[in-house]
Design a protein around this nucleic acid. Structure first.
Lengths: 356, 356
DNA sequence: CTGAAAGCGCTTACAG
DNA sequence: CTGAAAGCGCTTACAG
């Protein structure tokens, strides 16, 4: 990697200047709309730029300006065995990233995306590399331990997503608790289900922890049975969800009336496993998700879930970061509202009414 | 945007040098593993770097090295009305992008991602901005007219994806023709369908054009009826696919025995529309896709389609670009093989046999 | 309005 | 092995 050097005789602002017969300062000014260059000067520069196909070097601009106009985004890419060979964890993260991208473009920023594997040791190194190439960094869920986040935040502005706020860093998340409570309430009160289970996400995920906690509390509040624990440990993946169901069925144990999944991917796997065993959803067992990824509505039956405003979360993360980069301060913790999406996998009918 | 400047008193290599009591040259050497610094020197530098939390500035390195270790990727983001409010076009592009990312990391590169809207006027400007911040650029399908691609390629190494090779630029695509021929052959010969239709993608897409051409040729070769044209114009989206089916049904026209879609998204919309009208797939009408996006196997019935090696296409695009960046030359046109994925939407049964 | 020159934070011959 | 210094391609006070 060390021996790779740029080969082409790059075009510089000096080439443009001599072609246009002006100084490099003038070229820079017309390129950036600074000052008020004479019409004649402007035209000659513009023409020279076009003729040469000149594109200013971003590194040089960044060094001179102290601003790269780049934000880094780091997230985890699934590396475990995929559910029937597919890569599923894409959706949720990608929609958020799209939101970041859109917001960034509004400010003339570009986004440096970097994924790291779950088993990757060198996460900190990757993040540092990204940090060096950007004006600020957005970290998805579970990228770094709290201490490391605070440490990093001393060097570069940091926004964490779906985590919990750390000293020095800013955070953007959604209201997991309200969403989960509304969901459990719907299952217990509207449908009358008395036994529930929570197929958990990764145990080191703040999102997962707060969802599980809200699940337990709300179930308890309504005297419903709430299964959790080792038997119900998914890992945010379809494969994890399917495995949980299969293990229970293989052990000839009884399924609860409703299975609440930590996210939509998990619900997808759960429904798949149930279908394979000819167990009717929602007739025999209701299933719900969390996130409302695009495919959720296309499942059979359409998935009842909690919608996170994913794109908005991404956009908000950028906006918060941008304001820190430009003004030196920004919100430390922003919580976005969620929305219960009642479809059919909970037992409601297509026409919208629930059947008890 | 102009008035945003970096605020923090950034840490530089000078700070590290004085903290460690060595010259900046020594700091640089141990940071980059150049030369053979004395153990004592190395240790002092390492310690100073840790204590200060120093991260070298990427812009300065890039300027000095003539290498940013960044590649740009530009693609289109759907902006039209979404099918039931969702953003669907994510999948295909995102999987490719993931492949680019993985390959890039192997070389210590990071990826600058930028999406532009379909209606966006300033595509060229966006691409130029990205080009200035990267060592090379990867362009997804239909980003720029041929002439513009060639022009850009004079300034910066360019790889196009799923396009056709342009002068000066390199191209990576999959074997659309072979895939479509195999698919049509399966429909006509194995299932005996005599009337087919092709729901097209965007008309300015090289991929779409070669698929449609292969579709027509192969159908003709087997004397099957091949419907194409204005009535069958989708646009690579689920909404487009659904619209085509609905228009035909609303006009009380007869559907063909098999609907071949330009991509999986389109097939998704077609199947959705068919289901809404209670038309059985594949009993009444068979439906096929192209791409094999992750959700394809989860549709009901599972979608028969042609698998593009999406992640590999992304990785190959990077590798080709990298070799051009580092050695000055690389392949001009690489074609990757595809694979017919026979599932159930064509009329085959789950056990794998076709029913005529 | 315009140009000469300094400076942004690194890397790397070049001496020692 | 190590340091002083030049240079990467821009932007922007500072004079004129």
């Amino acid at each position: 990697m060390r021996d790779v050097k740029k080969l082409k005789g790059t075009l510089t602002i000096y080439d443009v200047a001599s072609q246009a017969g002006v100084s490099i300062a003038s070229v820079s000014r017309v390129l950036n709309g600074q000052g008020s260059p004479r019409a004649n000067t402007r035209e000659r520069v513009i023409r020279a730029v076009q003729e040469l196909g000149f594109v200013p070097d971003g590194a040089a601009r960044a060094l001179s300006n102290g601003l790269k106009e780049v934000v880094g985004v780091v997230f985890r890419r699934g590396e475990e065995t995929h559910f029937e060979g597919e890569d599923e964890s894409l959706l949720f993260i990608d929609v958020i990233n799209r939101g970041i991208d859109v917001a960034a473009q509004r400010r003339g920023f570009d986004v440096l995306m970097s994924s790291v594997g779950y088993t990757d040791e060198k996460v900190a190194a990757r993040i540092a590399s990204i940090a060096g190439k950007a004006d600020g960094v957005i970290l998805h869920d579970r990228m770094l331990p709290s201490a490391a986040i605070s440490k990093l935040a001393e060097t570069v502005p940091v926004v964490t997503l779906a985590g919990s706020p750390q000293k020095g860093a800013m955070n953007v998340r959604c209201d997991n608790e309200a969403g989960m409570r509304a969901l459990v309430r719907h299952l217990v009160k509207d449908h009358g289900y008395r036994s529930l289970a929570y197929v958990s996400g990764r145990s080191d995920s703040p999102d997962n922890r707060s969802r599980q906690k809200a699940f337990e509390q709300e179930a308890a509040a309504h005297q419903a049975t709430a299964n959790t624990g080792p038997d119900w440990q998914g890992n945010y993946s379809a494969a994890g969800g399917a495995k949980v169901v299969e293990a229970i069925l293989d052990a000839h144990r009884k399924l609860p009336r409703a299975i609440v999944c930590a996210n939509d991917q998990t619900a997808l796997g759960v429904m798949h496993a149930l279908a394979r065993r000819r167990i009717n959803v929602p007739g025999d067992v209701a299933v719900t998700g969390f996130d409302d990824v695009p495919v959720a509505r296309h499942l059979h039956p359409p998935l009842t879930t909690v919608r996170q405003p994913m794109q908005e979360m991404g956009a908000t993360a950028f906006d918060v970061l941008y304001s820190r980069i430009s003004t030196g301060h920004g919100d430390a913790d922003v919580v976005l509202p969620v929305q219960l999406m009642v479809r059919e996998s909970c037992g409601c009918t297509a026409s919208g009414r629930s059947r008890a």
